[in-house]
């Protein structure tokens, strides 16, 4: 797992992913990435059915530290794990921007991430997760997918397991899968396909890019 994290973090130096690059370059903001078992949760819906919540990873809202779910690490493909890492690093970047930036850097952050704030520039502090996913959906999916595609190339994956789309589109689907279920109002271009391809990697279903090193 940790070699995968190193690979992704290293890539941010050469990719135009401003957000994660900024997080990576900061000398004052340090985060710890670890793994732990995050048990599935069960929630009862309006019809009385038990529904399962599987958490791929979490970001601590106070420290920005990331915890990846051991169960998911054991199950997902390398690409699925890398996608989870990038997703959580984006959350950590948002926390960095909200809590640790000042002056010009703060203004730049607010301009870049307007979905996190209301029309008066007030942070959506009680609708945090939704606004962050909204922001990812609006501005970052393509660059997150580019980062993931780069990771795929460096690990010998050059074509999409879904033969109807390019590897680039396939990488976007993996991110859209999580953003679509977070009820972001900005939807995936093809939600059904994103769900299918996202599950293929996150649950290592047949026809995935398979599990190698992570």
């Amino acid at each position: 797992m940790f070699s995968c994290i190193g690979d992704i973090a290293g890539m941010t130096n050469v990719l135009s992913s401003v957000a994660i690059g900024q997080l990576y370059a900061s000398s004052s903001y340090n985060i710890i990435i670890s793994e732990n078992v995050i048990p599935d949760r069960y929630e009862t819906d309006a019809s009385g059915n038990q529904n399962i919540i599987t958490t791929n990873g979490t970001t601590n809202p106070i420290s920005g530290n990331i915890t990846l779910n051991t169960n998911v690490l054991n199950q997902s493909t390398d690409l699925g794990i890398a996608a989870t890492m990038i997703h959580e690093m984006m959350h950590s970047y948002f926390l960095y921007g909200i809590k640790a930036t000042t002056g010009v850097e703060k203004s730049f952050f607010i301009d870049m991430n307007s979905y996190l704030y209301d029309n008066n520039g007030i942070l959506y502090s009680d609708d945090y997760q939704r606004s962050q996913h909204e922001q990812m959906a609006a501005s970052y999916v393509n660059s997150m997918a580019s980062l993931l595609e780069m990771y795929a190339h460096s690990n010998g994956i050059y074509s999409s397991p879904d033969s109807n789309i390019s590897l680039s589109e396939y990488c976007k689907d993996i991110f859209w899968r999580n953003l679509a279920t977070s009820q972001s109002s900005i939807k995936a271009p093809n939600q059904t396909r994103a769900e299918r391809n996202g599950n293929r990697e996150l649950k290592n279903e047949s026809g995935s890019t398979n599990k190698k090193g992570c």
Binding site: R41, E43, D45, A46, N49, N51, I52, I53, S125, D126, D127, Y128, Q129, R130, T181, S182, Q183
Partner: peptide, 14 residues
């Protein structure tokens, strides 16, 4: 949030 398909998603825990 319950999108269906026997899954649930946490939107916010504040």
């Amino acid at each position: 949030y319950f999108p269906g398909n026997n899954t649930a998603n946490r939107l916010n825990t504040i």
